[in-house]
Structure formats: C-alpha cells, structure tokens
Lab assay of single mutants.
Amino acid sequence: MEVRTIKVFTTVDNINLHTQVVDMSMTYGQQFGPTYLDGADVTKIKPHNSHEGKTFYVLPNDDTLRVEAFEYYHTTDPSFLGRYMSALNHTKKWKYPQVNGLTSIKWADNNCYLATALLTLQQIELKFNPPALQDAYYRARAGEAANFCALILAYCNKTVGELGDVRETMSYLFQHANLDSCKRVLNVVCKTCGQQQTTLKGVEAVMYMGTLSYEQFKKGVQIPCTCGKQATKYLVQQESPFVMMSAPPAQYELKHGTFTCASEYTGNYQCGHYKHITSKETLYCIDGALLTKSSEYKGPITDVFYKENSYTTTIK
C-alpha cells in the first residue's frame, strides 16, 4: 500500500517557510505537534488534498525554529505562539472599519479597549522592536488589523473576551517599542525636605499616572512627601515624541487643539466601556464603527496623549 502524501510549508514567522512532505494517514499533531492554519487549530486533523502548498504555523520545537521565533517575536515564552494563534482565530472574524481616516474595530468580545489602543497607536510616533509587531502594525494602518490585535493580546497575556485596560495595554506595548531616546527629568520640591531631581528613561519617561493635564504637570502637581507634608512635583525636561497622561476616570474637559487623542471610560472596574476622542479640525468621538463630532467635550476621561518633541522648564 502506497503512502499518500502532500507537500506543505511549516513556519513560526510566515517569513521562513520549511518544506514538509506530510503523510495523509496521520494527523498534523502526530507529525508536527500543535499546528495552526489561519489561526485555526488543526492539530487533530489529517492532511487533505486542499492543504497542498498551504502554510501551517507550528510551535518552535527545534533550534532553527526557536531562533526564527525569537528573532521575529522577541520572546522565548513557549506558550506565546499558541496564544497568538488562538487569538487570531477570533480577531480574523472582527470587522476593521476605516473611521475618520483611522483603522478602528467594530465592537465584539469586549474589544473596546483594543480599538482605543489601536486608534491611539496610529496617532503617536512609535516604532516597535519585534519585527512581528512592526509588520502587523503597518498592515493594521492599511486596514488589516487582525494579526496586530492578536499579537497585542498575546504580548499582554490576554484572551479574547476578557476586559482590558488601555493604560495597561499601552504599557505592555511600550515595553516592546523603541523608547531608548526618551528621557524625563522631574523635580520634587518640599518646604521641609528641599528639592530632589529624578531622571527617568524609556517607558517611565512617557507615562504618568495622577493627572490628565500635561500643562498642569509642567506647572506642578501636589504629591505627598515622605515627611508627610505636601510637596510639588513638576516637569523639568521632556525628550520624547509623545507623552501619555493618565488618571482614574473623572469628568474632564478636553479643549480642541490642546491634545492629540484621549480615552474615555464609562462604567466601573468590573464592567465598563471605552471610547476614543481625537482632536482634528474639530473633536471626534470614535466608538467602534461609530463616529460623532463636537466642538467641545466633557466626560469621564482616563488617558490623554500629547505630541511632544523637546521641553525644558522655565521655572527657576
């Protein structure tokens, strides 16, 4: 009895394709271990004539594949690729409408935090270190965002349907971005203890939790000093293409032309909904596939993004 075979390709990165001759009487799992086709788990399936010449994702289970996976995804987590594939199996079914010149995501599976993050990423200057993220990001900007969303979920250790947080998501993504040249110098002034300067680099240099107003941050924000008295913390120097200011959701007025974009969060910790506000020729609110415009805006804002380049204080 002759062994019926077909020729397929296996890959971990969709760049390096490895030619395989597979036995049609055995499952993919018996031949390769966990195997995925377009995100779908085909591990328990036997090869079919229609699979001839198709590319299958496999887990990096030998040295060659491990090197290829690390170079593309910059992670050695053995569960990463499987999590990416199972997320992709959902995100490829989502709709990605162009809204006001940006790629958004039609609401499904509690994905409003991903839509808000995706919209924000198209408006701030950011370059990702893992080629996987950078490639998928370019495709997302062009309207094909399924891979990018699935990668975000995998890097953030999230599953489809789980509630997510924009600030946490951005923080994970910033860790995989090139923020080497970003720098922030802060000064804390206390009447009792004097003053202390701190220099922050990388992710810490672009994120701040405690106030939404970048102007206020430049002037000074009140913080408790270690001595128990009130101290003032203010920005001395900022070198970065953008800054992200966050605070627990509270009524906040966004003035046209003073910011790049913002995240609105309605609801409580267990259950809520994100919308995205962007400042173009007027203010726009993007909620999944829905767009509304207004000249002014007041609502429960939790993150505001500002364009920056270089700032030095005039406070002496």
Rank of each mutant, 00 (worst) to 15 (best):
Y274P: 00
S279G: 09
T159C: 15
T19D: 13
N14D: 11
L290Y: 14
G82E: 15
K307P: 13
A132E: 05
S310R: 13
H90E: 14
Q197N: 06
S294A: 14
L121Y: 04
G29C: 03
T91M: 06
Y28E: 08
H276V: 03
C182T: 03
Q123V: 06
N100R: 13
D38F: 10
T282G: 13
T211D: 01
Y214E: 14
G257E: 12
A150H: 04
Y265Q: 00
G202C: 01
Y72S: 10
T232K: 10
K298A: 15
I301V: 10
T55I: 10
L235I: 07
F80L: 07
F148P: 04
P300W: 15
W94T: 07
L114F: 08
S246A: 03
L126Q: 06
Y155H: 07
Q197G: 05
L291M: 14
T192R: 12
D62Q: 07
E68R: 06
I223V: 15
T159G: 12
G288I: 04
A247K: 13
K95C: 12
V221W: 05
L179V: 03
P224S: 12
Y214Q: 07
L283I: 15
Q134L: 07
Y84I: 02
T5E: 09
F70S: 09
T43F: 09
A262R: 01
T302K: 01
E68Y: 06
T312K: 05
P224G: 08
F32D: 06
T91A: 05
L163H: 10
K158R: 05
Y28C: 05
A136S: 08
S246E: 01
E253G: 00
N16W: 09
T258F: 05
L163Y: 15
S171Q: 13
Y208S: 08
L102I: 04
G194W: 03
L254N: 02
C261I: 09
H18N: 09
V3R: 10
T76Q: 15
G288P: 05
T199V: 11
K7G: 11
K316I: 15
L173Q: 03
H256W: 11
G272H: 00
A205N: 07
H176M: 10
A136L: 04
I6G: 07
A117R: 02
V188H: 07
G202Q: 03
E125V: 03
C190D: 01
L290R: 09
P241V: 01
